[in-house]
Nucleic acid binder design. Sequence first.
DNA 1: ACACTTGTTTAGAATCATTATAAACAGGAT
DNA 2: ATCCTGTTTATAATGATTCTAAACAAGTGT
Lengths: 132, 132
Amino acid sequence: MKYIDKLRNSGLRPTKQRLQICEVLFSTEKTFHFTINDLEQKIKNKINNKISLATIYNTVHAFEKKGYLKQIPINSNQTYFDTNVTDHHHFYDLKNEKLIDLENSDVGPINIKRKINGKKIKSVEVLVKLED
Amino acid sequence: MKYIDKLRNSGLRPTKQRLQICEVLFSTEKTFHFTINDLEQKIKNKINNKISLATIYNTVHAFEKKGYLKQIPINSNQTYFDTNVTDHHHFYDLKNEKLIDLENSDVGPINIKRKINGKKIKSVEVLVKLED
DNA sequence: ACACTTGTTTAGAATCATTATAAACAGGAT
DNA sequence: ATCCTGTTTATAATGATTCTAAACAAGTGT
Ligand SMILES: [Mn+2]
Ligand SMILES: [Mn+2]
Ligand SMILES: [Zn+2]
Ligand SMILES: [Zn+2]
């Protein structure tokens, strides 16, 4: 399995549940955005055994900490995650609550001129809200 | 009172609670960021009567809908609001969970080149996450 | 001033995403 | 096989937010 090494190299045991969640999250060429609820449904559809909700939360947070997922900050009652962990920006369609990736070339480089003493920049993200 | 007209012109009755919340939110020259919890504390400190938590939620949402407040999208368990309703960007200090305004001149104009069919841009916000 | 309508406030309950608990389980090393 | 420790799981707890519906108050008209 291609995910076993990925997990081992991160210090995560390659359990059956984690491998199956890897399959759901990382086996497609296209990256995507999801909530825990979305992921729960995808898992239900793609595998026959059950993975507990607690494990889904645990795994997503473990993967996030290892840099295999990232959270996207939007105002929603549910947390959105992204399998695209490169630096990139988003459209957020307020009507259907869906995120759309923006290529960096669609926005251009962003130059933050101001500095805060003792702090360094971890990320720069643009969120473009869309309405009808 | 200076807030009575503001409220009446928005179709909101100038109740005692709303006027007091206006005082807390809009009487300082500096704008600021807050959570509902922050606001609850500020209210407790500045006035002697009690305003119920439900009213604080109701009022914040009413003011948001009228454009007197806006929500700032960040990944936090609590919703952040801003009394600065102009288009502007933010630093977000991950350590102490505080927002800092960025002047538009600190970021420069952002040109979104891509268009989505049938949708128009409502806002463009940059979030710069800070770590130590 | 009074009555009437409708918007607002309120305490408390409900909702619901997320996190904590702690017991059963499984990976991996020896 | 045994042991250790990380992981999974069902379930409970948490906590921010929203809902409910009854009491209340603002505004309007008389
Ligand atoms: Mn997380
Ligand atoms: Mn809201
Ligand atoms: Zn994305
Ligand atoms: Zn701000």
